[in-house]
Design a binder for these strands. Structure first.
Lengths: 245, 245
DNA sequence: CGATTACTTGAACCGCTTCAAGTATCGTGG
DNA sequence: CCACGATACTTGAAGCGGTTCAAGTAATCG
């Protein structure tokens, strides 16, 4: 499965960014996966209330964890890019409280929970790295709570852009200071917990301040210093240091 | 250490609520702890940027994970009650992005990271239960994001009350439909990401609707059905089912 | 080229914040 | 046991940030 190995590469890259992953570990991890599937933008990958027997890894495109409310509003609680698990927590939580939707056309690889267990048993350090993966997920949630609760809308969007830039950079999907972030402003509104109209105005405010350019799917950061200051962005929470864990 | 065993009891209760914990496992877990410490309300237990070599468990009182912003605002991202770890994620994240403060007078027990590792090695199922503990923490974050992003303020507060009631109930700290929740409205505002004034008015709105009574430290839920409907509260995310994990 | 989707703009409105004051409540010392 | 200070809670009023409604314009795609 040379093909699958290539698809899993972003995950290996992410883990290698946080601690050394041996060749042996890489082989064990790749061996746990057993196929992939593609989805078109807008399609449901996981439904609220599902009890999956496998976990799914984004290998291309962008997906989002979300919940819909009775009034019709949607809140996205996580954005997954290549190398991110969308439901590794399902391994132990069993029943999922949120759904996952394809925010762009995307491709997803599968790993059975049985295989996750085997990996933990046979390669304890790799098991810890999978735990770490879910801890970073949680760490991002916490930072979103801070940004959502206490930052004005333009700073909140700036925070999202700073974070996504660094996360894309880790998996080698940035080009200088720009990256391909092909989500609509409607989706961005559901991430930020704001209205579409206000997201539009806030993005324009960032543009007018010469902090970013956002044309079509391409986001370019024009002034990282001022953008990250506005967002009060401290990348500690992304856990980007390489050390024994 | 009969005393320490008694103090760890809420943690055992929490875990036992999600899966069977054997006597052997209980002994191993208790044996990992090595002492406790008390804090007065308002004192810092963990500082942002710390690199702890142990994790801390609340055994009495309430603590809160938080971050302070330059404008002076504070956002609380998690509330910990007896039986909750406040920084088990520090075991693998190493550097903590948020501080932890005592929201009431409280007592905390300590477990060295070395001992966490020993527990995982010697009792794999117990190790998974610790992982699960951090996954539930993350699951709560996600639900807070939804409530914060898409619910009006009274419904958001209702959601917090529903959640706290069930979490207190799990560790046996409820009495009929009421529980001791001795936090100030200022703290509640920092949890909800709202202003103190508006929290006050929203609490009064819940009172006027005969959904709750909140006198001093005692919160009583007068109408669970209507309160949980207002909050769109679905307890799935608290992972309260007992099953093999 | 026409239909659909995404983005943009204006204007009225409302939920929440801020400022400012006043009233309970609680702990503590005289 | 009361006086007093501190803290928590409550209320009113003005203002602002963000929403909603309603169009209109620009992309995108068959």
């Amino acid at each position: 499965m040379v093909d699958l190995e290539r698809k899993i590469a972003p995950l290996i890259t992410q883990l290698s960014n946080r601690d050394r992953i041996s060749d042996e570990e890489r082989k064990i991890l790749v061996g746990g996966f057993h196929g992939s599937k593609t989805y078109t933008a807008g399609s449901e990958i996981i439904f609220e209330g599902d009890r999956p027997t496998m976990s799914q890894l984004v290998v291309g495109g962008i997906t989002g964890r979300y919940k819909v409310l009775t009034a019709g509003g949607r809140q996205i609680t996580a954005v997954h890019i290549p190398g991110d698990f969308m439901d590794l927590h399902g391994f132990l939580l069993k029943k999922l409280a949120h759904g996952v939707v394809a925010l762009t056309d995307c491709e997803v690889a599968h790993i059975q929970h049985d295989n996750v267990q085997k990996i933990i048993d046979s390669a304890p350090h790799l098991g810890r790295m999978l735990w770490l993966d879910t801890l970073i997920d949680a760490s991002i949630h916490r930072e979103w709570l801070v940004a959502m609760g206490r930052l004005p809308s333009d700073a909140q969007l700036a925070h999202i852009i700073c974070e996504m830039f660094l996360r894309f950079k880790v998996v080698g999907l940035t080009d200088e200071m720009s990256f391909n972030f092909s989500i609509t402003q409607t989706t961005l509104a559901d991430i930020a917990g704001l209205s579409i109209v206000h997201v539009n105005r806030s993005v324009q405010s960032l543009r007018k301040s010469d902090l970013i350019s956002w044309k079509g799917a391409t986001v370019e950061i024009l002034d990282w210093t001022r953008l990250s200051e506005l967002a009060e962005f401290d990348p500690t929470y992304l856990c980007l240091s390489n050390e024994p864990r």
